[in-house]
Design a protein around this nucleic acid. Sequence first.
DNA 1: GGTTGTGAATACTTTCACAGCG
DNA 2: CGCTGTGAAAGTATTCACAACC
Lengths: 233, 233
Amino acid sequence: MRALPPTTVARLPGYLRSLGGLASEGVTTTSSDQLAELVGASPAQLRKDLSYLGAGGRRGVGYEVDHLRRQIAQALGMTEERRVVIVGIGNLGQALAAYSGFADRGFVLVGLFDTDPALVGTEVGGHVVQHVDGLERAVEEQEASVAIVATPASAAQPTTDRLVSAGVTGILNFAPRTVRVPDGVDVREVDLGSELQILGFHARQRSGAAAPAEPAGPAVEPAPEPEPVPAAD
Amino acid sequence: MRALPPTTVARLPGYLRSLGGLASEGVTTTSSDQLAELVGASPAQLRKDLSYLGAGGRRGVGYEVDHLRRQIAQALGMTEERRVVIVGIGNLGQALAAYSGFADRGFVLVGLFDTDPALVGTEVGGHVVQHVDGLERAVEEQEASVAIVATPASAAQPTTDRLVSAGVTGILNFAPRTVRVPDGVDVREVDLGSELQILGFHARQRSGAAAPAEPAGPAVEPAPEPEPVPAAD
DNA sequence: GGTTGTGAATACTTTCACAGCG
DNA sequence: CGCTGTGAAAGTATTCACAACC
């Protein structure tokens, strides 16, 4: 088991969160059944995930909460400090800058950047907003390895390029545009619009929308094929 | 191919976005190669995804941009209006309330809710914040089918329960806690902390972290901090 | 010529079910 | 006994590669 499957990695933060909850309730030992219930996964999946970590569960007993927390935290690199900058201090950037969970996860916010002269120099979440002109320099000096991009769509790719060339290796992109990065750089895209649209898909399924060209079927009521909207804008 | 695979659904918003870009440049026809390049997917995957939709690509020619847009928009239910409420109007909730992409995607914001008396009655993003006491009533009256939860973690589950019982069938949860919903309700979890931690995992991989193995030994010591490696590569 | 649509092949993920150990 | 760890099975997703068609 050299590398963890990406799906496993994506679940670890949730496990860690639930383990924290257990710990704060004074629980010292847990089982795959209990933890699976908390995180909303299957016990088998949980055991498999944890087995990749070499988590030392004891048969007949379960897992030691504290030990498991340390192991997941280490797998996620939380034992090392990561320095993070945020670029784009609009509504969303400001909310992200105010996020209180950085420290708990080993992240230290070291800079906020924007182009808006009205914003530069103001303080947001305890940091003074700087002009993006100084982005590369600050990234290098501060040894930032992670960046959060919360710019308008049009600025996302250029901003990303600058961040990468300055040495950032992890990017969390909130701009509604997928950004390209070279090998060795990791991007995660988070897009409110896409998430809404995915919800919209399921809502449509539920609302009895027949599949396109799916005539066969029981006597469902005259499915209202939604009138084509006035077309594209 | 009854239903689209979830992975395909998750990619459709990105396709739609890129198609919009092409359309605004006056491009009327595209190919799986061109579109794949834009969205950062493989041409084969794109063709397979589009084939699930029954998108009428023409061999030797490609896809008609406008037709494809309409087809994806319909699959995503964008032709029907979805009414959405936001609960929790803190920093993040305010940023989400100000999001300008609702209308383009067929979503209409119909209510903002919070418990904070200092917030109730104020206007955010063109809407007056209401007290959550009136949540169920408003959801029913406004026929909201989608809710965005941006409350603190502790309020996420109770809020979700209330929303669901009032009739909401799609939830976008930004609170750092997975929420449980009954069958027939769709939840998407978006968590900044988790995303950061996933980035942290990859950063750790890169920084030459040794294999996680504690080869042998019953008692594991809690001091496995690896050597700090400053900016290799 | 070019490009789609798609079965087949490969890769990955989840679930099952039970051996193995405390 | 109870509960983990894990091979094997089942289920999904992606990629390949080429026939079909324009």
